[in-house]
Structure formats: structure tokens, C-alpha cells
């Protein structure tokens, strides 16, 4: 059954979209990640305009993170004060990202910029995860104890002004680093159509030394609010949120995530991280390949957006 998407202005097979949402939902349930980094490129491969894929992606991520964030909040796993700082930064970053997106679209460089962002971040995060998971699998095989993270270490982060007390995280640190991290994630979210958890979680653990128990909940808290703002801004600035497309993806994603979570319970953490790293690197290589290989068609056409630059 084909369905005409009102904003993407194309006719797509609804079953294919449901399947796509389901598959991405399965993987995100399996690995415990948002899945935006898979969904947005897949939508672009499918022929959805890059801007609509990114804008609609933020709406889908909002829907898939809201229930998780609620559950974490109920279990008291959210550092609300830290979350607020992250959100404040995120909103600024998102605003910059959405505005930059409009300018880049006018210049005809948006697709390139998105691809470069994907290659950079997926490449870096994928490589780090791969090294880490291979290392811990090897350590387990050789019977060595897995080293645990040491708390209470001081780094350059602790020398900055505007110190705030984050009770839930048991931290007394400057508000600048969390705001910067939030802003960076908000910017990425707007440009790449991702939640940004894969950058925010490691940054909070390694840079801010937030206890692991509150990291997931607090990052979900940030993602929900920043994604809500991003969806709103994308709708206003770029008119690139397709509600019909998002709803189909949400339905598929919700069902897929249930199966994914069930399947994920049967696998070991290191194995999951290794598979996720491989998947991230595959997506990265695919996008890099498209950038570097001589295109079959060097010309492209598009609508004129708000005057030429």
C-alpha cells in the first residue's frame, strides 16, 4: 500500500516504512540506543529529502525517548538540575543548528555537511567502541579483572567558574562543561537528526564523571526536551517535519523496540557493544563511500529556497 507523504511530497510504500521503523526500533531496543543515526541515513537512501529526513527524525526520536525518560524519572535516575543545564545548552545548540541548516540548504551544501558530520562522529564513536569492546572481550577471555572507573579524580573540568552543586550526581562542578556538552549535542541533533546519546553518555561519564546510574536517565531527559524544541524549530524554520512519515516510523519503531529489548537480554554487554560498534562503522563507511566514489550523476536539481546565496 502506497502512501503519499504530505511534506516529503513523495509516494512511499507504507509497509516498507513500517518495516524500516521496526528494524531500527529492533536495533535500538537491542543496543539500548536511540537509533536516529540509523534511521536518518536510511530515510535519505530511500529518497526522502535530507532536510525532511532530519526534521522528521527529531520527531521520531522524541516519541521513542519520552517513555524511557518517564520510566527513568520514576526510578529517580534523573539529575534534574544537571538535566536543566544540559537542556539550556541544548536549546541554544539546536537553534544554531537549525539556522545553519537553512543557510547550508540555500548554499546547496547541506547534504555534504550532514554526510561529513556522520562520517566524523560515527567513525570516531564506532572506532572507540570497537577498541573498548574488543579489549574487554580479550580481558575476559584471559581472565583478568575488568578495571572499574575510579571516581573522585579531578580534571581540567573542575577548574572552571560558575560552580554548581548537582546533588543527585554528587558533584560540585562548573555549569560550563555540561552546558557546552548540551549545546554540542543540541547542534548535532538539529543537523544530523539524531538524539545524540552516543556522544552525551560518554561525555558525561568521562568528562563530568557523572555516576553511571543517573547518566542514562539524565541524557534521556535532555534528549526529550531538546528534541521537542528541535522539532518545533524545524517545523518553523525549515518546514521539514512530516507528521505522517513520523507516525508510521513511530508505530514500527515501538513494536520493533519491544522485540529488540527481549533479544538484547540474551546477549552479553561486550558482545552487544562490539556488534553496535560494527554497525556504526558500517553506516559510517557507507556514507564515506558515497562521498568519495565518483557519482554516476554529477548534476542535481532542487527548489530555490529563500533567494540565492
Amino acid at each position: 500500500m502506497n502512501i503519499y507523504l504530505p511534506i516529503a511530497e513523495m509516494s512511499v510504500n507504507a509497509a516498507l516504512l513500517l518495516g524500516l521503523g521496526g528494524a531500527v526500533g529492533f536495533l535500538s531496543g537491542l543496543f539500548g540506543v536511540g537509533g536516529g543515526f540509523l534511521l536518518t541515513p536510511l530515510l535519505i537512501f530511500l529518497g526522502v529529502p535530507t532536510s525532511v529526513a532530519v526534521g522528521t527524525g527529531s520527531m521520531q526520536i522524541l516519541a521513542s525517548s519520552v517513555s524511557g525518560a518517564m520510566a527513568q524519572y520514576r526510578r529517580n535516575n534523573v539529575d534534574v538540575k544537571m538535566g536543566m543545564v544540559l537542556v539550556a545548552g541544548g536549546v541554544v545548540g539546536s537553534f544554531i543548528g537549525v539556522s545553519l541548516m537553512r543557510i547550508l540548504r540555500q548554499m546547496g551544501q547541506f547534504e555534504l555537511f550532514v554526510s561529513l558530520c556522520y562520517v566524523t562522529f560515527l567513525g570516531a564513536v564506532g572506532a572507540l567502541m570497537l577498541i573498548e569492546s574488543v579489549g574487554s572481550i580479550q580481558r575476559q577471555r584471559s581472565g583478568q579483572p575488568v578495571p572499574t572507573r575510579q571516581t573522585g579524580q579531578h580534571s581540567w573540568v573542575h577548574g572552571l567558574p560558575f560552580k554548581m552543586r548537582f546533588h543527585r550526581s554528587k558533584l560540585y562542578i562548573s555549569a560550563v562543561p555540561p552546558a557546552m556538552i548540551g549545546a554540542f549535542v543540541g547542534f548535532m541533533a538539529a543537523i544530523m537528526g539524531v538524539g545524540g546519546g552516543f556522544v552525551m553518555v560518554p561525555a558525561m561519564i568521562y568528562l563530568l564523571r557523572v555516576p553511571t546510574s543517573v547518566v542514562i536517565g539524565t541524557s534521556l531527559f535532555q534528549i526529550v526536551f531538546v528534541m521537542a524544541v528541535t522539532t518545533l524549530l524545524q517545523a518553523i524554520e525549515n518546514k521539514s517535519v512530516d507528521v505522517v512519515l513520523a507516525l508510521i516510523l513511530i508505530v514500527g519503531g515501538v513494536v520493533g523496540a519491544q522485540f529488540g529489548a527481549a533479544a538484547g537480554g540474551k546477549l552479553k554487554g561486550e558482545q552487544l557493544r562490539f556488534m553496535l560498534a560494527a554497525l556504526v562503522l558500517l553506516v559510517c563507511l557507507r556514507i564515506a563511500w558515497d562521498l568519495m566514489v565518483t557519482p554516476a550523476e554529477i548534476f542535481s536539481i532542487g527548489p530555490l529556497i529563500g533567494g540565492t546565496l
Partner: peptide, 15 residues
């Protein structure tokens, strides 16, 4: 945009 946000939140909670 506001309605898109509300739809997303509601469908996430409903699910």
C-alpha cells in the same frame, strides 16, 4: 510544530 511535538509525546506514552 507544536502539534507534532504533542503527537510525538502522546504516541510515545501510549506505546
Amino acid at each position: 510544530g507544536l502539534i507534532a511535538v504533542i503527537i510525538a509525546v502522546l504516541s510515545g506514552l501510549l506505546a
